[in-house]
């Protein structure tokens, strides 16, 4: 994936969510993992990458083109991305199938028949074929997150962004969703994800970035970052989260 951040800054009031982040994703990386303490800037960075928010200063280059700050060009950027939220965010008044067909039909201009076929294939792929006609309230958390994943992937996005995709799920459902994501990684889908599941980040990511206080403290291949961290902050963080 081709992403470059220069001087990226985002403030909320007086608090810096990101402060002058400079980072370029190394050549050949397909899955990028963001780890670090809550409030460290992971979500903010993902929102900026996904075109859901604009920086106060600095810039993002995606495939060598500068991301605009205007809403219209940013919308075309959002259309080539798939974004998955922590809390699923499905549309509660629509069935699983309708949740997936809505963007295909209305955003990507596919005819209804084709939209439905694509959506059904996607739901099948995530083992949701039996649940296509159900509304989100009738599905378990894990099922909802897989529907959300089908919605984010149905238009074959260039990049899939996952913001802590399992932090609202219990362990069993977490495994069920992580299995699906790991499968996507193996298939070569380009993904940027933030997670608190260190084992998972290690297993699927080609490159891991440690974000804290709105800055990139350290980055590198997972084996290096997890086994031989250079900074004290990463070592301390890993020590805390791996303790139990």
């Amino acid at each position: 994936m081709n992403i470059e951040l220069t001087g990226l800054t985002r403030r909320y009031g007086d608090a810096h969510a990101l402060r002058e982040v400079n980072y370029r994703v190394p050549e050949g990386v397909r899955v990028l993992g963001l780890i670090g303490p809550s409030g460290g800037g992971k979500s903010t960075l993902l929102r900026l990458l996904g075109g859901l928010d604009v920086p106060d200063a600095g810039e993002i280059r995606f495939d060598s083109t500068l991301l605009s700050r205007e809403d219209n060009p940013l919308r075309s950027h959002r259309r080539r991305i798939g974004f998955l939220f922590q809390a699923f965010n499905l549309f509660p008044h629509l069935t699983a199938l309708e949740n997936v067909t809505l963007p295909l039909r209305e955003v990507h201009g596919k005819p209804p028949g084709e939209s439905e076929k694509i959506a059904r294939d996607c739901l099948d792929r995530f083992r949701l074929a039996d649940h296509a006609g159900k509304r989100p309230a009738e599905l378990s958390g894990g099922q909802q997150q897989r529907v959300a994943l089908a919605r984010a992937l149905a238009h074959q996005p260039k990049l899939l962004i996952l913001d802590e995709p399992t932090s609202a799920l219990d362990p069993e459902m977490t495994a069920e969703v992580l299995d699906v994501i790991a499968e996507l990684c193996r298939e070569g889908q380009e993904i940027v994800l933030s997670t608190h599941e260190m084992g998972f980040a290690r297993a699927v990511a080609d490159e891991v970035v440690f974000l804290a206080d709105g800055q990139v403290i350290e980055h590198g291949p997972p084996a290096q970052l997890f086994d031989r961290p250079e900074s004290a902050a990463v070592e301390k963080f890993l020590g805390r989260v791996m303790r139990y």
Binding site: G50, L52, R78, N89, L90, F91, P103, V107, H108, A152
Partner: peptide, 8 residues
């Protein structure tokens, strides 16, 4: 936000 994210 979800509607924005899917490009509506």
């Amino acid at each position: 936000e979800s509607a924005r994210a899917i490009g509506l």
